[in-house]
Nucleic acid binder design. Sequence first.
DNA 1: AATCTACATTATAATAATTCTAAACTATTG
DNA 2: CAATAGTTTAGAATTATTATAATGTAGATT
Lengths: 142, 142
Amino acid sequence: MPKNCNFIEKLREVGLRPTKQRIKMCEVLYNREKTFHFTINDLVKMISEKMNEKISLATVYNTVHAFEKKGYLKEISIDSHKSYFDTNTSAHHHFFDEDTHELIDCDDNDIDPVNIKKNITGKKINSVEVLVRIASDNQTQK
Amino acid sequence: MPKNCNFIEKLREVGLRPTKQRIKMCEVLYNREKTFHFTINDLVKMISEKMNEKISLATVYNTVHAFEKKGYLKEISIDSHKSYFDTNTSAHHHFFDEDTHELIDCDDNDIDPVNIKKNITGKKINSVEVLVRIASDNQTQK
DNA sequence: AATCTACATTATAATAATTCTAAACTATTG
DNA sequence: CAATAGTTTAGAATTATTATAATGTAGATT
């Protein structure tokens, strides 16, 4: 979603009613330079810090899932205990820092295209994503 | 872990006391031809079906985590809502069937080595894993 | 083999993340 | 501007997982 777009129009285009809460969430998520990753918890904090009106937790869940279904957000499964979401909805790869639990986007130049040689009949490939787990290198570990 | 191995010895080797419950779990997990994937819930069912003595849910959690820490099991994050574990503990890639939610192992021949060009200073790469999401191909989807 | 001690198991309680519910609200349609 | 279909909300319910504290057991020590 571009920077200064009309969120009302964008929401309407995909069949989501442009409610106050959804527009507010769009602003928090997309009025920024770079895409980013967050958990539901993070998002609730961000909203309550930036906005003066409160929003229900259930609405945040509903809206995140509505956005995900419409392709405005992408869920990333790294850590089974939390759902991470990504405002970068294109297929892309990640580094995951196991020390800090930080998730870092790769761009296409960081990883060469992955060559899949296996073919499963009747099935098409929806996406190919690489997860590179990294950690501090300050000591020699076997 | 090989088929007919002595689980008592194996457990002792890594410093886990060979309790009745842990041996039972080893049998359920490793006395089989092929590696497989499961959730905690699956495992509890498998144990209660195959064995006549009951086992506490807490013990299953404890034991799975003990096994994971010692390299007997590997956790796979695909779906944020459930923890999947894999008795194949080597670094390997997966296909995930989005229709059936089935997880399929790849062997090394299925996917060419992934070339990571990005380097993060002070960090070493722990693992590189590819997830290929597949789905039924019976109709043309954009 | 009896005893000791650290580690394990257990049932249950607690916590955390997410979903459900049903009433109140609001954007859109006519 | 009334009807209605979709939305928000607080709180209850559900689900997955972890903590607790009492009891049990493996392995070491006598």
